[in-house]
Design a protein around this nucleic acid. Structure first.
Length: 492
DNA sequence: GTAGGGTTAG
């Protein structure tokens, strides 16, 4: 670790092939704890073939509790086909194994995420025949995936036909579908097709109004959000502190910093409940536009008012210092929170790591990553993505690839972002080998159930053609046509 | 899985 620390930043950092590198900072070295059972199961499923998979699942020493199945599915989250065939094999081994509703929900989510809605619905049908559901949560999962697949109308349909699946429509499921649509920026649809039409029938409450107001805020239409609040008041509903916090955040998000400040002052004047969320919003809002001093003043005011900062408050402060001040000052705040007994979460670590990367301290960023594990906060896929991205941006593509290879074994499977980051960096050197790797990554991500954007396919195809890899380009075209995209007409 | 505050960078 020390050699890494004192290496000049321009020099290439070699990442050792052994994973022990990430836990090597503690002296004397402790024996690594045995991996959790779900991790080793996930690893052997990843390494399995359709022929060997059943054997793994029949291991009599494994007790397939719902918890173990759920954890294993979570480990395999970024390899949906393997996760789904694992669950399919297991759930057909009844009555030796009785699948739980929660495992079905995970499987439905996985199938819908790879846009295999037929598979998702047939899982729902099996759930129903086993009297395990579907629950409103199951249907919410499907609705959210329809929205993610660009089919918000289908999501609305799922809600409107809930009773056909044996679920009751009530205010809570109404609010859930509103929230799903609003969070995906389909506020207009949520408001016009559902809220205005059915708001009366379901007795829309303060939460319903908050969801819609937040939706307008997310797309920076604060005047519409204010309208919603007015309508809410006209209906005799009292805004909650959540309502005010939504509006406050909305002003900051829309760049209306003065309005945000005035709103905050009004809140204080009218004796609204100013809580830790309010303060965190204001600290982050000022900090992110570079008003560090004002952010700090609000932080101090918070303490005077006797409101304790939360980990999120510290995270807000750390982020704005990284962005608008120095990463060194951010680390001082990080150390302060440790001194005060706060337990940083993965967001905290990722913020500091990103700050270090941004300041060009890749060595320190890697060191911080290893420190995470020691603090009982294992690096997650975002952590890897941050470091891979910055390695690639700094031209140290080999280091990025190396780290990526580490992830594959099942420790932390790469997600869609990881693939996109790596594939885009395969274009900078204009090397034929790099384009071939981009093609391989593209095929691998499709194999793992991700749906690349059409643009990604076209960029890789163009690159391969320009570097004389016509044969490989043809293979990519075949993969593209199988992955649900129409292949572009190409002269090969 | 009925709402609000902290993770990319372009």
């Amino acid at each position: 670790m020390l050699t890494l620390l004192h290496r000049p930043p321009a020099q290439t950092i070699t990442i050792p092939t052994s994973f022990s590198f990430f836990t090597a900072a503690s002296t004397p070295p402790l024996p690594p704890p045995p991996p959790p059972l779900d991790a080793s199961i996930a690893a052997s499923i990843l390494a399995s073939t359709p022929q060997t998979l059943p054997g793994i699942l029949q291991d009599p020493s494994i007790q397939w509790t719902p918890e173990l199945v759920d954890k294993t599915l979570k480990r395999l989250w970024n390899h949906a086909p393997k996760a789904l065939s694992f669950f399919a094999h297991l759930s057909h081994r009844r009555p030796a194994y009785a699948p739980a509703a929660s495992s079905f929900d995970h499987a439905v989510d996985l199938a819908a995420r790879v846009r295999d809605f037929r598979a998702a619905w047939s899982l729902v049908a099996r759930m129903r025949s086993l009297r395990l559901g579907p629950s409103p949560k199951t249907l919410a999962i499907i609705a959210e995936r329809y929205v993610a697949a660009g089919k918000p109308d289908r999501a609305v349909k799922v809600f409107l036909s809930m009773h056909e699946h044996g679920c009751r429509q009530d205010l809570s499921s109404f609010n859930t579908i509103l929230d799903i649509l609003c969070k995906s920026r389909h506020v207009e649809m949520a408001s016009n097709k559902l809220f205005k039409v059915f708001g009366g029938r379901f007795k829309a409450d303060c939460v319903s109004y908050n969801i819609i107001a937040n939706g307008w805020c997310l797309i920076k239409r604060t005047p519409m959000a204010l309208e919603v609040l007015k309508e809410m008041a006209d209906r005799g509903l009292t805004p909650s502190s959540t309502t005010y916090n939504i509006m406050l955040k909305g002003f900051f998000r829309a760049g209306q910093v003065d309005e945000a400040w005035q709103f905050f002052l009004q809140m204080k004047k009218r004796k609204c409940d100013i809580d830790v969320v309010t303060y965190t919003t204001v600290i982050h809002g000022f900090g992110i536009v570079g008003e560090i001093k004002k952010a700090k003043r609000v932080f101090d005011e918070m303490a005077r008012e006797g409101i304790l900062p939360s980990v999120a408050t510290y995270n807000a402060m750390i982020q704005v210092l990284c962005k608008k001040d120095t990463v060194e000052n951010a680390i001082l705040v990080f150390e302060e929170m440790l001194r005060k007994g706060y337990v940083p979460n993965s967001i905290t670590y990722n913020l500091v790591i990103r700050g270090l990367c941004h300041a060009g301290h890749m060595d320190r960023a890697v060191e911080f990553m290893s420190r995470m594990g020691e603090d009982g906060c294992e690096p997650n896929v975002q952590t890897y993505n941050i470091i891979i991205r910055y390695f690639c941006n700094a031209g140290e593509i080999e280091n990025g690839i190396h780290l990526f290879e580490k992830m594959g074994s099942g420790v932390c499977l790469p997600n869609l972002d990881t693939y996109n980051i790596l594939i885009s960096s395969m274009f900078v050197r204009k090397k034929s080998d790099d384009l071939v790797l981009a093609g391989k990554l593209l095929i691998e991500m499709v194999d793992r159930g991700f749906v690349p954007r059409k643009l990604t396919f076209n960029r890789v195809l163009d690159g391969l053609l320009l570097t004389g890899n016509q044969g490989f380009a043809k293979e990519i075209l075949r993969v593209q046509s199988k992955s649900g995209h129409l292949p572009r007409r190409f002269k090969l």
